[in-house]
């Protein structure tokens, strides 16, 4: 842990193409920075020592935040967590994301930190990841070769590793409009009131009354090398079985999918226990009155 940052050259491009030119020019020696709340910490620890830091905050295009019926939510790469938190559509339609944002970092950090940064850090504990996984989000990736859309699960390849090439950057996160009756929650197991997730659970339910078309989704943070979605859940909840049995099956499906470890924050046993109870709590909160 150092007081000083390693030496680097600071760039503040005004357009995406200028940023991409810089990435292209410096190859692996450059890194992009949004809020810097992860990057600068890593740099002080010398976990990362980039020679060039490309600050994205000067690029106007990346600051856009829109919601359009049919199209969904588009969150530019420099949109801060607090801006998102105050955005009406997030609160009204993307409950789990709103829960996650409310319970992330603290007010000061949220004023700087971005959603794209949270995803690109690719921490297993990234709080925005599980909600975005249950909402089927995609990230828009730009490179000198053009733009492509990446399904969120394909972004994460390992602990703090992404599938992004050295000449690529995320320009926005797209979240499709969910069904009108959607309900979702994000619950977080923590050591104190402000903490990163020991276990995070995002749950989403839609079209509950139509068993064959029913949508139930679960995704987790801090239980595997990357945030994970448990795809089996959807199938499980379309079976014609009593509620209690469905929940049991969903919990075992989740436990099968995850691979929690013991670390300084929690033992593996406690994580397994939290996966169990938080999954049940989330589903109960969403379906309490309706099953």
């Amino acid at each position: 842990m150092f007081v000083t940052l390693p030496e680097f050259e600071y760039h503040r491009p005004q357009t995406v193409s200028a940023a991409l030119d810089l990435l292209d020019q410096y190859g692996g020696g450059a890194t992009v920075m949004a809020g810097g709340t992860d990057l600068l910490v890593d740099m002080r620890y010398r976990i990362r020592v980039p020679e060039h830091v490309i600050d994205l905050k000067g690029i106007e295009e990346l600051g856009k935040l829109t919601f359009q019926p049919g199209e969904g939510l588009v969150i530019g790469a420099t949109v801060t967590l607090n801006r998102l938190l105050e955005y009406d559509a997030v609160q009204s339609r993307f409950g789990a994301l709103h829960d996650a944002l409310e319970d992330m970092c603290d007010d000061q950090v949220r004023n700087r930190a971005t959603l794209a940064g949270n995803l690109c850090t690719a921490s297993p504990a990234a709080d925005c990841a599980p909600p975005l996984l249950v909402f089927d989000a995609k990230v828009e990736v730009a490179s000198p070769a053009g733009r492509r859309m990446v399904d969120l699960p394909d972004l994460f390849t390992g602990v703090k590793e992404t599938s992004l090439g050295t000449d690529e950057m995320v320009t926005a996160v797209h979240v499709p409009e969910p069904p009108p009756d959607v309900q979702s929650r994000y619950l977080k197991g923590k050591r104190s009131s402000e903490d990163c997730a020991i276990v995070g659970v995002a749950a989403l339910v839609a079209r509950w009354d139509d068993p064959r078309d029913r949508v139930v989704r679960l995704a987790y943070s801090s239980v595997a090398p990357t945030p994970v979605r448990v795809y089996d859940v959807e199938r499980i909840f379309r079976q014609d079985k009593p509620w209690g049995d469905l929940v049991e099956e969903a919990v075992s499906a989740a436990l099968n999918r995850v691979s929690p470890i013991s670390d300084v924050r929690s033992s593996k046993e406690y994580r397994v226990h939290l996966i169990d109870v938080l999954t049940r709590l989330a589903l109960r909160e969403l379906l309490g009155g309706r099953r």
């Binding site: 603290d106 050591r191 104190s192 009131s193 402000e194 903490d195 990163c196 924050r265």
Partner: peptide, 10 residues
């Protein structure tokens, strides 16, 4: 990050 102390909300 891992030495937790109370904050106002606690």
């Amino acid at each position: 990050l891992d030495y937790k102390i109370a904050r106002m909300s606690d």
